[in-house]
Amino acid sequence: MYARNLSAKPGRPELILRGITLFYLGVMILLPMAALAIQAAQPGAQAFWEALRDPLAWHSIQLTFTTAFLMVLINAVTGTATAWVLVRYEFPGKGLMNALIDLPFAIPTVVTGVMLVALYGPNSTVGTVLGQYGWGVIYQKPGVVLALLFVTYPFVIRSVQPVLMELDRAEEEAASTLGASSWTTFRRVTLPALFPSILTGSALSFSRALGEFGSVVMVAGNHPLLTKTAPLYIFGEIESGNRHGALVVSAVLLISSLAVLLALNLVQRRWEGDHDA
């Protein structure tokens, strides 16, 4: 179980434990990923490209990226503002709000979808009123963005909040004593200190949004070229028997998500390096 620091070589129990865990991770995570990657690539680069160029496939990928990007822009601003308000101010209901912030992480994504349909759906009061003005939420793009905003709501807040709590306010005070306006102080002193955590929260929410399915499928309905995001496209192609089309878009999603997380990891390491220096 424990490799002794003093004894150079791990004993048999340590090796057995290591073997079991590595085997589990290999069979449960690496093997399925390898199977997916190989099957997606097997028919060749030409076929891969063809499947990607399918108008429905390409549109679903574009839609996924644009909605995720829009969500990140909104969440970066509102998340930072929310963290700021929770850390710096006292107000009635703050305790309840702080407790409910993580609810989107705990609540099943399908239930999120049901909630949004119950509120904005065609049969709901709000949905009817909005519909009279020609504003559709459910089965429209705004519904997709709304679902993504809900499921990723806590990421930026929970990433910025601890940094803001640790932040030394002496620097902000020094800046404004020296005559900086409050906006300048925020922009030049506070924001740079918060930037890494805002970026971390944004990257995590972007990666999550690329793959979101449960909430989106409930609010998107079945409208190709309108609300069909990449995960919905993949599911549709599995159902209709186009395994290769599903695999190709899956590979694109997987690579994009991994690239975002890897880039974040590299950037974080550089920041840590700067911090140590």
Binding site: I29, A35, L36, P231, I234, L254, S257
Partner: peptide
């Protein structure tokens, strides 16, 4: 590397995770 592999499921869309299992 093992440390990174543990986090991989976070990067995988649930739909893609299901497809992986179907493929395998």
């Amino acid at each position: 590397l093992v440390d990174g592999v543990v986090d991989l499921p976070f990067a995988v869309s649930p739909i893609v995770a299901g497809l992986m299992l179907v493929v395998l």
